[in-house]
């Protein structure tokens, strides 16, 4: 066991995968609690598809992938938030529209330029080999920013997640914090996308929050539990991916499914036992 672990960590690409993966999982779990409770889960999914389109265009234009994808996805995040906040437009339909359109643009651009090859496959389903030194540095910087902002604004994020009307009535600028959450989510998604895959990255946002809510009864408990569960599942998933040569993204999602099953069982047992 320890030998296998040592062997894994002797490969630089594995160290990079663990580092970036754990940081991205941590950030998306924290943001995910708020997004799931505010019924904005679909935004995460929509953003990853926009990210796919942006990456494809960046590759075609021979530009740095993240330099293109991050601004594009941030703009999309703000836009999607506006759409969801506006009850007149059907928010879920609009998100589906934007995400499929971006996917289509991405696929068209790739097929015209480089052709449908393994790159496309990697974008869609993620690759453990995708992380470069630059990506690691960028992930560390951005994750620290996300964590600091999250801790600094934790009380306000709780207030607008629980009851936005009350928060606004007591002078919290809810619109600003919603935008902040969306922007941080956008950055996190772009960072994690190439490893997890455009189709699977939103699982990092949704699973840990839902898993923790099976058992935890306080907001702080859900936040801490989500962070821990997310990192453990990510590490487990990447180990499975390495040992069984399965795609990284899918392996991490499998680990998350297992965690959800365990937590649901614990929650159900506790409810039946009547223990509070």
């Amino acid at each position: 066991m320890i030998d296998t672990l040592a062997e894994m960590l002797s490969y630089p690409f594995m160290v990079r995968a663990f580092t970036v993966g754990a940081l991205v999982a941590l950030c998306s779990a924290l943001l995910g609690v708020s997004l799931v409770l505010k019924r904005y889960s679909m935004i995460g999914d929509g953003l990853s598809h926009v990210g796919f389109g942006a990456l494809a265009v960046a590759a075609a234009l021979n530009m740095t992938p993240l330099a293109v994808a991050i601004p594009v996805v941030i703009v999309a995040a703000v836009l999607l938030l506006r759409i969801s906040g506006n009850s007149k437009i059907k928010g879920d339909a609009a998100i589906a529209l934007i995400s499929t359109s971006s996917l289509a643009v991405g696929v068209m651009v790739i097929s015209v330029t480089t052709g449908m090859n393994t790159d496309v496959y990697n974008y869609m389903f993620g690759s453990i080999l995708a992380m470069s030194e630059d990506d690691v540095r960028m992930s560390i910087v951005l994750s620290v920013i996300v964590l600091v902002l999250f801790i600094f604004f934790y009380q306000k994020i709780f207030a607008i997640t629980f009851d936005e009307t009350f928060a606004r009535a007591t002078g919290v600028r809810a619109g600003m914090y919603n935008t902040l959450i969306a922007v941080l989510t956008a950055v996190t998604i772009v960072l994690g996308m190439r490893m997890m895959g455009a189709l699977l990255i939103s699982s990092l946002i949704i699973f840990p929050a839902l898993t923790s809510m099976r058992v935890c009864r306080t907001f702080r408990g859900v936040i801490i539990s989500s962070a821990v569960v997310a990192v453990i599942c990510l590490v487990a998933g990447i180990m499975v991916s390495y040992l069984c040569s399965t795609p990284a993204g899918a392996s991490v999602v499998m680990a998350n499914i297992a965690a959800l099953a365990v937590f649901s069982a614990v929650g159900a047992l506790r409810n039946r036992g009547g223990i509070h």
């Binding site: 409770l37 009380q155 306000k156 709780f158 207030a159 629980f162 009851d163 009350f166 928060a167 007591t170 002078g171 919290v172 923790s212 809510m213 935890c216 009864r217 306080t218 907001f219 702080r220 408990g221 859900v222």
Partner: peptide, 16 residues
């Protein structure tokens, strides 16, 4: 259906 304790909710009234 929100996971928050009574204390957390009451305390959030102090934000202003």
């Amino acid at each position: 259906d929100f996971p928050a304790s009574v204390y957390e909710v009451v305390l959030s009234g102090r934000l202003n």
